[in-house]
Design a protein around this nucleic acid. Structure first.
Length: 272
DNA sequence: AGAGGTACCTGGCAGC
DNA sequence: TGCTGCCAGGTACCTC
């Protein structure tokens, strides 16, 4: 589920329940996630210490304390919620981080593509984060940047903007949506797009992510309930998963294709 | 170096 | 109802 807006919504939802709370215990029911969960290190470095901040870099959540940082990724199917510590776990509730409030931060992840790691140093120097491109909602991301970096590149623009080294955290849904909004054909070579069109694209990426985060904000309360189900997304999508439906702008039938195993949908009339 | 494909894992759904 | 095959929002790693 989680694309960047969902991860940011999760961060905002859990932060008040975690920040300035002491971790009183850790339960790892399944340590085989994308990489093995470093249980012993987490026991030593996390338990008994107060979590100071919950930050986000790309789709990574960073839980920081005085010893270092827990790096958490939700993969394709992960979610986090805050539940009473004694609530019975479900089949895919792999990790509980117990808090002094009597609650637990619970990681659920059916497909186990997610990750929970530990780093002692500055998280931005961790190998998973080191070569990430700029944050799409940050200062140093704009159309000029996208244009400059794309010269002579033959990759399809959709793959280009989904590459975390180009810009961090633009996933399949929002890549489709942003390209539609900018009127750019997803298969166009990245190096053959003008600076002006890249400015439109960068604006579209920003806009689509921001409006989605804004809508996610309305469901924040859902991160803390007995069901433990985050209440994402009533977000309205213009093209994603609408293959065969009329284009919301011109009425032309939206076309589906596959790019690098990922579903792409676009309007053959509006996107060139 | 860049481009493209593969792998990890489970659940849900369409089609038979 | 139950089986099979395909698809899914991510991304590291492999090969060409």
């Amino acid at each position: 589920m989680p694309e960047l807006p969902e991860v940011e919504t999760t961060r905002r939802g859990i932060a008040p329940h975690i920040q300035n709370h002491k971790v009183t215990g850790l339960r790892v029911r399944q340590r085989r996630l994308r990489w093995p969960v470093p249980v012993a290190r987490l026991q030593t470095k996390l338990v008994g210490f107060t979590l100071e901040r919950v930050e986000r870099r790309a789709k990574y959540l960073l839980l920081r304390n005085e010893n270092g940082t827990a790096i958490l990724h939700l993969g394709m199917s992960g979610s986090l919620c805050v539940v009473p510590a004694d609530q019975a776990p479900g089949k895919h509730d792999h990790v509980d981080i117990l808090l002094d409030s009597g609650q637990a931060l619970r990681l659920t992840d059916p497909r186990r593509f997610g990750a929970l790691l530990w780093t002692a140093g500055p998280p931005e120097e961790h190998e998973l984060l080191r070569s990430l491109g700029p944050e799409p909602l940050g200062e140093d991301f704009d159309g000029d940047y996208l244009w400059r970096r794309s010269r002579n590149r033959k990759v399809a623009v959709k793959s280009y903007i989904m590459d975390a080294k180009t810009v961090a955290g633009v996933g399949n849904i929002y890549a489709n949506e942003a390209l539609f909004m900018a009127g750019i054909h997803p298969a166009r070579a990245a190096g053959r797009i003008s600076r002006e069109r890249y400015r439109k694209l960068a604006d579209a990426i920003r806009q689509v992510l921001e409006s989605s985060i804004a809508q996610g904000g309305t469901t924040l309360r859902d991160f803390v309930n007995s069901e433990g189900k985050p209440g994402y997304f009533a977000v309205q999508l213009q093209v994603y998963d609408r293959d065969g439906e009329p284009c919301p702008v011109c009425g032309t039938t939206l076309k589906g294709m596959r790019q690098g195993q990922r579903a792409t949908v676009y309007c053959p009339h509006c996107q060139r």
